[in-house]
């Protein structure tokens, strides 16, 4: 018996772009021409089902809608239309995003864990392990704003992987940090994957996707071009690009 973990039903995600600046009251009221409004269809009618045991690699060129789709599944972006159903709250591993710039790395770890819903006791139990995983050493007590982009990514990644999710979404998180950390990150993701029901992976490395995934989804212009066993989809993707 296989169980459904994610059901995506005719999902559209539109972005409204204001070419001038963020919508002001005047623009909202006047609207129409000259307000610089454009609608971008990042995800344009995507439907599929994912099951426990699926490790799905998302393929497609830049701007094809992979990350937006992933963020929609994570509940961080609301679909303009269509429906996404999940069996458990998905956890997205991303490298973007800033936490509290003025606070130290350590405090950011604590806040991030609490934001994910850990209790103070759970946090106390895990915090050393997370600090250790970041490999930031003394820098952990420096303000987040002094970190390089690689260090920031490592910190965020380490927070994200501290909880074992049932549905795991990984957005380019494997490209984090230096080579040492990358290896560590890969091992960690593989172990999370071993216990996770379902994995979605966005990566620019086809090799990585092929190794970690058993199913492929190829997106282009917000639409699914191919869905099937990873080797077949990669073969098609490779032929076309």
């Amino acid at each position: 018996m296989t169980s459904l973990s994610v059901k995506v039903d005719d999902v559209h995600v539109d972005y409204e772009i204001f070419s001038e600046r963020r919508a002001g009251l005047r623009q909202r009221l006047v609207g129409g021409k000259g307000s610089g409004r454009r609608v971008i269809k990042a995800v344009n009618g995507v439907s599929f089902e994912a099951f426990r045991g699926d490790a799905i690699g998302l393929l497609g060129s830049n701007g094809s809608g992979k990350s937006t789709l992933l963020r929609a599944i994570a509940g961080l972006v609301e679909p303009t239309s269509g429906e996404i159903l999940v069996s458990h709250e998905p956890k997205i591993l991303g490298v973007g995003g800033a936490l509290m710039l003025d606070a130290t790395g350590l405090k950011n770890i604590k806040l991030g864990c609490l934001a994910m819903g850990m209790t103070k006791d759970e946090l106390a139990e895990k915090v050393d392990e997370i600090v250790e995983f970041t490999g930031l050493g003394e820098a952990i007590n420096r303000p987040f704003k002094t970190y390089s982009s690689g260090m920031r990514a490592r910190l965020l990644f380490s927070i994200s992987v501290s909880i074992q999710p049932e549905i795991l979404l990984v957005d380019e998180a494997l490209a984090v940090g230096d080579r040492n950390f990358k290896d560590k990150a890969r091992v960690k993701i593989e172990s999370l994957l071993a216990n996770a029901g379902t994995l979605f992976l966005v990566s620019h490395s086809t090799g990585e996707i092929e190794r970690l995934c058993n199913r492929g989804l190829w997106l282009e212009n917000g639409k699914i071009l191919a869905d099937g066993p990873i080797a077949d989809v990669i073969a098609e993707y490779g032929v076309d690009t």
Binding site: M1, T2, S3, L4, K7, E49, F51, A74, G75, E78, P79, E83, I84, L85, V86, S87, E89, P90, R215, K223, I224, L225, A226, D227, G228, P229, D232, E236
Partner: peptide, 23 residues
Amino acid sequence: MTVHDDPHPESDVEDQGLFSLNE
């Protein structure tokens, strides 16, 4: 659009307890 064989035929799919994060 290419759709390969469905590895999970409809009959033995259990979709109990699905919920929407946007509701």
